[in-house]
């Protein structure tokens, strides 16, 4: 049998909450929904007036920039964002 160790990380709901908090800190007015998908994968929807007039790339950079810490390092809590929707209210 392979000597595989499964390290239990924090539950997905807790990581989702950390994502939410990190985005809220950078974008205090935003309405934020974070859905855990597969382990380490999340789907995020952010609705904020600051997105007005920004290109899709610039909108997404605002969100990715806010959660960069959670995605950095050799085994980060957030492995990938499967979907990121940025909307203007």
């Amino acid at each position: 049998m392979a000597l595989q160790i499964i390290n239990a990380g924090p539950p997905p709901e807790e990581i989702a909450e950390r994502i939410r908090t990190a985005i809220a800190q950078a974008m205090p007015e935003a309405e934020i929904v974070v859905h855990p998908e597969n382990p380490g994968h999340f789907a995020i929807t952010v609705i904020d007036a600051v997105f007005e007039g920004l290109s899709r790339v610039k909108q997404q950079q605002r969100v990715y920039g806010a959660i960069a810490d959670l995605m950095a390092g050799p085994s980060p809590p957030v492995h990938a964002i499967d979907r990121l929707e940025c909307k203007v209210p």
Partner: peptide
């Protein structure tokens, strides 16, 4: 580059110093 661009994945395309996007874009 992920921090520099505020973008979590590679590849990343820059044109005349401006970040353009990743594969999907």
């Amino acid at each position: 580059i992920k921090v520099f661009s505020s973008w979590p994945t590679v590849p990343q395309l820059y044109v005349r110093g401006e970040f353009v996007g990743g594969c999907d874009i």
